[in-house]
């Protein structure tokens, strides 16, 4: 079981490493969106500190959603996905491996770049650490929920814009608690603990149910 997981994971990572620009596009999209906000709302540091967490999280939501379109698309076009459906291995495990690879390529870079964008918004060191932690727990959930939408909109024209319509409302809890944790950390660091408990709980639930739902969606789309 674990071998199948590693096999898919390393395959997807290798494939992505051959086309590094895809990874960089998502990352730079994130950085550009975040950098636009101070230009739009003014560069006063008080205001930036207040909107910072929310802006970073909304940008992370958009970036991970834009990348979702490619989650199954390449495998769908060259027929690999159909072969995966026919294997004896449980499909949800394969989906989980693909989502993991996708998160390493699009979610993890956002976590690593977070200190940089945090500085753009004059966030304190504590707030930046909390933001990195929140993104570390939160972005996998985004990928997991998003995979359901990506599977449902597989191969549709205008799939990307449709995907955002379906998935963005479902991201609300992550947005609320993810940016809430950073917001609170500016006042009292100890108060962030319940936020992480909730995000962690979401991650566990999503890890169990989202791959099952995504594989059901894939079966519907490929039938």
């Amino acid at each position: 079981m674990l071998r199948v997981f590693w096999c898919i994971l390393s395959r997807d990572l290798t494939l992505a490493m051959r086309r590094r620009t895809d990874v960089l596009t998502t990352l730079f999209f994130f950085v550009i969106v975040v950098s636009l906000f101070p230009l739009g709302v003014g560069t006063e540091s008080k205001a930036l500190q207040i909107i910072g967490p929310g802006v970073v999280w909304v940008a992370a939501l958009l970036a991970s959603m834009l990348a979702l379109e490619r989650l199954f698309a390449a495998d769908y076009e060259d027929g690999t996905l159909e072969q995966m459906l026919l294997t004896a291995q449980p499909l949800s495990l394969l989906v989980l491996a693909k989502v993991t690879a996708h998160w390493i390529l699009t979610g993890l870079p956002l976590v690593l770049i977070a200190p940089l964008v945090g500085m753009q918004f004059q966030l304190t060191d504590n707030a930046i650490i909390i933001m990195m932690l929140a993104l570390l727990v939160g972005t996998p959930i985004l990928s997991l929920i998003g995979a359901i939408g990506a599977a449902l909109t597989l191969g549709l024209r205008g799939g990307g814009i449709l995907l955002s319509l379906l998935i963005l409302p479902l991201y609300i809890p992550i947005l609320v608690y993810g940016s809430g944790a950073v917001e609170v950390s500016r006042i009292a660091l100890a108060d962030t603990q319940p936020y992480f408990a909730l995000l962690g709980a979401f991650l566990l639930v999503a890890l169990i149910f989202a791959p099952v739902a995504s594989s059901a969606a894939l079966k519907i789309s490929l039938e």
Binding site: V184, A213, E223
Partner: peptide, 30 residues
């Protein structure tokens, strides 16, 4: 496919509704 895909989406939506409501209702767990 349209029937089955949107049915699955509706079910996922219904499962998420309580979580969304709760997160909006209580943005600060403290």
């Amino acid at each position: 496919r349209a029937d089955r895909a949107s049915a699955l989406l509706a079910i996922v939506g219904l499962i998420m509704v309580p979580v969304i409501f709760w997160s909006i209702n209580c943005p600060d767990p403290n």
